[in-house]
């Protein structure tokens, strides 16, 4: 059988998809906060994007919308841990929005030295672009991670 094709979530996905219970990720351990903005090719905040987080090491799922006036987001989770000898700790990120005909997939890494390591996915990314996948520590268990659809500093997106 052939697969059903993807279509955009459009601008009204909140009606069906946004629930308070998925705004932070379940899990024990040290809690961290990741915050950032979703930006389009001209750097304009995307005020109608939806982000999904899959954290494989503790099987936690999160989903939330960017702020309807600022395009910013913030979520809390427990600090991810590495799942293998070379694999660097990460979160899987799916981005959906009006104008996105299919999900964008990226990853958030936390260890800045991972860009020189042997992570099976990070090591496939052109070296100069790897920093777009690493969250920046802003202290007090907080991290910044922006998602840029295109243009200067375009986030690396993955095909799986």
């Amino acid at each position: 059988m052939s697969v059903t094709p993807s279509q955009t979530v459009g601008p009204y996905f909140q009606i069906g998809l946004i629930h308070e219970r998925w705004s932070s990720l379940a899990g024990n351990g040290e809690r961290i906060t990741i915050e950032g903005s979703v930006l389009d090719a001209e750097g304009v905040p995307v005020t109608d994007a939806m982000i999904e987080i899959w954290q494989p090491d503790n099987k936690a799922f999160g989903r939330f919308a960017t702020d309807p006036s600022t395009g910013r987001f913030a979520f809390e989770t427990s600090r991810p841990v590495s799942m293998g000898p070379d694999a660097a700790a990460h979160l899987c990120v799916g981005v959906f929005a009006r104008g996105l005909l299919k999900r964008l997939y990226t990853r958030i890494y936390f260890d800045p030295t991972a860009i020189n390591g042997n992570d099976p996915i990070l090591s496939l990314v052109p070296y100069a672009r790897r920093p777009t996948l690493v969250a920046v520590s802003t202290g007090d268990r907080r991290y910044r991670f922006d998602i840029r659809f295109a243009g200067e500093g375009e986030t690396v997106f993955l095909e799986c």
Partner: peptide
């Protein structure tokens, strides 16, 4: 304005 300009990086399927 919402589509990536760079090609996607094709990745192997890991446990994640």
């Amino acid at each position: 304005l919402r589509s990536p300009r760079e090609p996607l990086v094709i990745v192997p399927h890991t446990l994640s």
